[in-house]
Design a protein around this nucleic acid. Structure first.
Length: 925
RNA sequence: GCGUCUAUAGCUCAGUUGGUUAGAGCGCUACCUUGACAUGGUAGAGGUCCCCUGUUCGAGUCAGGGUAGACGCACCA
């Protein structure tokens, strides 16, 4: 074995073996345990958020597999309609072509080509992360079977009237030329203006001043509204306005939507281009004049001068013209929320089109109930409030997209404009008795990507066919995902799964935090702070990292700043930390917090942890590989030392802590337990405690065998415990150590399919106390050495004063450990009344550990040390006395708490007394 | 406007139903190349738990108010 851990040397081979041996498959035995992978974009690549969530899912999957559950991690990828289509369109654009030049069929073929080219990328990266989903069950949302489910759901919902087609105002992206759902629109505060304009009455008897942030929409105004109770305008209601620039006559109407306090209290109404105006238009039966084309230019409905102008250009022209005509009263700066498409960044237009909708109200009810009843639990729990808030105000879902890449809507039109929905054209004809000569054209639109994602829990299990997987793995056990897609995905899966299977899709929803950079900023290409998980695994040179961060930028002017920052943070690039260190980091950072600032220092620390494990194993193997480890030996030929018994007891405590933490999705606590045990107990103490036995001349063969037996078996079990989080290093070490134990080894033996360490029924707690005592004595002596500046190499004589019977027994039993680990050449137990020479001292319970000062210890230094210790304890004594002297504390606090305080006071007073005695003795020298 | 979250060591974060002296990692200081490991060992320093008021025998933890910041939803003529 190498002296330092080298992850590259082991990871790839390991994975190939697992996969080719079929170890990722559900066993078919035991309790079902299932996790659904949130399908990543098929042509995407693995980012830190994926790596984080996948680590958690894989840890759960591996843990449950080892626990003997029938464990399935169902994986797959998403066709990601808009995102993928945009990528391919950009490629075409580079060749000076648009998708329309190719035509629908050829374009879609291009997308499939792109999928074939880049589609394996993210799944290969997942393999690098060590994830263990059942790859043979991998599905793609546009696979035949999933598409079948999509059609089936659409047809059934349509039949029930829950999918309908309607002309309504939608969020229109004028760059992508498609409708998008409410969720795909982000409203950001931007600086704008408020224009006030005079609208003259038709009869010339006056005017109303209206204010707007979008003056160009005035060309589509079909009313002006005032509040019905507004005294200022009582005389105006019902009169007509002559709309400037167009000369159209529009009514003044009264509607209590109008806020009298805001602006002038008069609102221009443009029903075809504003959601509120649309509602008002419906209420008052107003004309709806669409003045825009689908790329947001003014259309034929407007005066000739403005036709064909882009909306922003038109705004300028109209404002100018109004100003010239004296219609513009004033312009004020005004902050407003601007709706933009989350993909294109374009300003979204409310636009009147025909679209398909899902009527969600009846679907939402059972989905709300499922969470309210506790059948589905959010972890952390308060996310259910976010869920309820959205679900209780849910709007119908616009599911049609004017794209080409996606599931084509299963609807056909005849020449009369009749719509037929069905599984395919033939069944539409059959079901509707349409003659062969009736021409049918399929709807051009495709479905929102999230429509197919919503079916993930059951469509991946074979629905609409009746399959065993539907029975076994629906509901799945837990969904691991981010809060950013609770509405997009989680809520819709609950609705659809309830609707079509009658079951919930998952029992728990573990909402992870969002990975941010070390300063708490979101990672983004434009900020240049993106970390690629693969680069943390393999390492990357500074040059390559700079190229990655600054190459092909949308805003090249930022490149220099990014390069500077990158050079500063990674002057030598990024080191190779290996998968296990990265995974451990993610686990350790997975607390309940919603933002997780990724700290490179943690990765480095856990890389060191891997190295520690590696070297501990090296030590174990060095001492056992060519020796008798008691394999197959009878129990009576193996003599376990106190240290051996202690480490087992400590180990199972840790197993308990780990399992408890995992059951609550506290991966940070679980990781902490693993780290603490492995480093601070196993390495720092246990391995050191084996050395005296292995090296002592007078150890018996049974004792040495016992120690070796514990070394290999402990390490073997520890690897199992660590395996769910750190699959590679544990497999690699396990392969070496398991043959030294009684584990059954066959050709395809892997740690992956060993059972998880199980706590024996009885744990001997007495050894725990014994070894804790030993540790205290050793630490006390080391402390004196450290603070007195006595070389660790200098052997010391030690005297134990006021030792109880138990102290003496413990000393007898562990003197070998004590003398070796504290480097003592002599230990003497002082008899009662026997005088000790002047000494430095450490206190362990009632016992004092004395190190004679002669020739070793500086009087002043020891006095200083005692003063420091007394200071600490004095404060303690005072605080405790204060509490116990407080009558209300004594009368009101629970007895157990008072007892504790009393014991504490007694202990502290005794220690203080001893320190005072020591001080007197030393001062007298 | 409605709702959610965060504030603890220089940095990144734990801290359970209120109850020992508030913890970890990194960083820092001193010493140590000891046959597993310097990606290491030993010892140590470092805290006004954001502020105020309250409840309580007792508050980092609970309540009210405030400050600073993050996010979601709705609305903004």
């Amino acid at each position: 074995m190498d002296k330092t851990f080298n992850p590259q040397a082991i990871e790839q081979d390991c994975y190939a073996d697992w996969e080719s041996n079929g170890l990722f498959k559900a066993s078919g035995e035991g309790e079902p345990y299932c996790i659904l992978l949130p399908p990543p974009n098929v042509t995407g690549s693995l980012h830190m958020g994926h790596a984080f969530q996948h680590t958690i899912m894989d840890t759960l999957t591996r843990y449950h597999r080892m626990k003997g559950d029938n464990t399935l991690w169902q994986c797959g990828t998403d066709h990601a309609g808009i995102a993928t289509q945009m990528v391919v369109e950009r490629q075409l654009d580079a060749q000076g072509k648009s998708r329309h030049d190719l035509g629908r069929e050829a374009f879609i073929e291009k997308v499939w080509d792109w999928k074939a080219e880049s589609g394996g990328n993210i799944t290969q990266q997942m393999r690098r992360l060590g994830t263990s989903p059942d790859w043979d069950r991998e599905v793609f949302t546009m696979d035949e079977n999933l598409s079948k489910a999509v059609t089936e759901v659409f047809v059934q919902l349509h039949k029930e009237g829950l999918i309908y087609r309607g002309k309504r105002l939608v969020n229109w992206d004028p760059v992508l030329h498609t409708a998008v759902s409410d969720l795909e629109v982000v409203n950001e505060e931007e600086a704008g203006h408020m224009w006030h304009m005079r609208y003259p009455l038709e009869d010339g008897s006056g005017e109303l001043v209206v204010a707007t942030t979008r003056p160009e929409t005035m060309l589509g105004d079909t009313a002006v509204a005032v509040h019905p109770d507004d005294e200022r305008y009582q005389g105006y209601i019902g009169k007509m306005i002559k709309l400037p620039l167009t000369g159209r006559l529009i009514p003044i109407i009264a509607d209590d939507y109008v806020d009298q306090e805001f602006g002038t209290g008069c609102v221009k109404i443009t029903p075809a281009h504003d959601f509120n105006d649309y509602d008002m238009g419906k209420r008052h039966d107003l004309e709806m004049i669409n003045i825009l084309t689908d790329d947001a230019k003014l259309n034929q409905e407007v005066p000739e001068a403005y036709r064909g102008l882009d909306r922003f250009e038109a705004r300028e022209r109209i404002v100018n013209d109004l100003d010239e005509k004296g219609i513009l009263v004033k312009v004020e700066p005004h902050g407003l929320k601007v709706p933009r498409g989350d993909r294109s960044g374009a300003v979204i237009e409310p636009y009147l089109t025909d679209q398909w909708y899902v009527a969600v109200e009846s679907l939402a009810k059972p989905a709300i109930d499922a969470v309210e009843s506790g059948e589905i639990k959010f972890v952390p729990e308060n996310w259910n409030k976010t869920y309820y808030q959205w679900m209780h105000n849910i709007q119908d879902w616009c599911i049609s997209r004017q794209l080409w890449w996606g599931h084509r809507i299963p609807a056909w039109y005849d020449n009369e404009g009749n719509i037929y929905v069905g599984r395919d054209e033939a069944s539409v004809r059959a079901e509707n008795n349409l003659a062969d000569d009736v021409q049918l054209a399929q709807d051009e639109d495709v479905l929102d990507t999230w429509f197919s994602s919503a079916l993930w829990p059951f469509a991946t299990m074979g629905w609409p066919d009746e399959t065993p997987e539907l029975d076994t793995f629906v509901p799945s056990s837990v969904l691991v995902t981010g809060f950013d897609i609770i509405f997009f995905w989680v809520a819709r899966m609950i609705m659809m799964t309830k609707k079509f299977t009658g079951k919930i899709p998952f029992k728990e929803i573990y909402i992870t935090g969002l990975i941010r950079d070390e300063q708490g900023d979101k990672m983004s290409k434009s900020k240049g702070n993106v970390l690629d998980p693969i680069d943390l695994i393999d390492g990357i040179s500074l040059d390559a990292l700079l190229e990655k961060r600054t190459g092909g930028m949308m805003q090249p002017q930022k490149a220099e700043k990014i390069a500077k920052r990158t050079r500063k943070q990674f002057p030598e690039g990024i080191a190779s930390y290996g998968t296990d260190a990265l995974r451990f980091t993610f686990a350790a950072m997975a607390s309940t917090s919603r933002d997780i600032n990724f700290d490179m220092g943690r990765v480095e620390g856990y890389r060191n942890f891997c190295n520690k494990i590696w070297n501990a194993s090296r030590f174990v193997l060095m001492n056992t590989e060519d020796a008798d480890t008691g394999k197959g030996a009878s129990a009576d030929s193996i003599e376990l030392s106190m240290a051996d018994q202690w480490i087992w007891a400590r180990f199972y405590q840790t197993v308990g802590e780990f399992e408890q933490a995992i059951s609550q999705y506290r991966f940070d606590i679980a990781a902490q337990a693993l780290y603490e045990f492995t480093w601070n107990q196993f390495c720092d103490w246990y391995l050191e405690l084996t050395k005296p036995i292995l090296n002592a001349e007078n150890s018996t063969e049974a004792q040495k065998r016992g120690t070796r037996h514990t070394l290999v078996n402990m390490l073997e079990q520890l690897m199992r415990l660590l395996h769910p989080v750190m699959p590679f290093i544990t497999e690699s070490i396990w392969q070496r150590v398991a043959p030294l134990t009684d584990c059954e080894m066959h050709d395809n033996a892997s740690i992956m399919i060993q059972s998880f360490p199980a706590k024996p029924k009885q744990l001997d707690n007495t050894v725990l106390g014994d070894v804790e005592w030993l540790k205290k004595v050793i630490v006390g002596i080391r402390n004196i050495r450290g603070e007195m500046d006595i070389s660790p190499n200098k052997p010391l004589s030690v005297i134990l004063r006021n030792a109880s019977e138990q102290d003496e027994q413990r000393f007898e039993a562990m003197s070998l450990y004590l003398t070796r680990m504290a480097k003592l050449d002599d230990v003497k137990v002082l008899a009662v009344n026997e005088k000790a020479p002047p000494s430095a001292s450490a206190i362990v319970g009632d016992m004092e550990v004395l190190i004679p000062m002669a020739g070793l210890i500086d009087k002043d230094a020891e006095l200083a040390r005692i003063a420091k210790a007394m200071d600490k304890i004095e404060k303690d004594v005072l605080r405790t006395q204060g509490k116990l002297n407080n009558e209300s504390f004594v009368s009101k606090a629970p007895a157990a708490v008072i007892e504790k305080e009393k014991a504490k006071l007694a202990d502290a007073s005794q220690q203080l007394h001893k320190l005072q005695e020591q001080e007197k003795t030393i001062r007298a020298l």
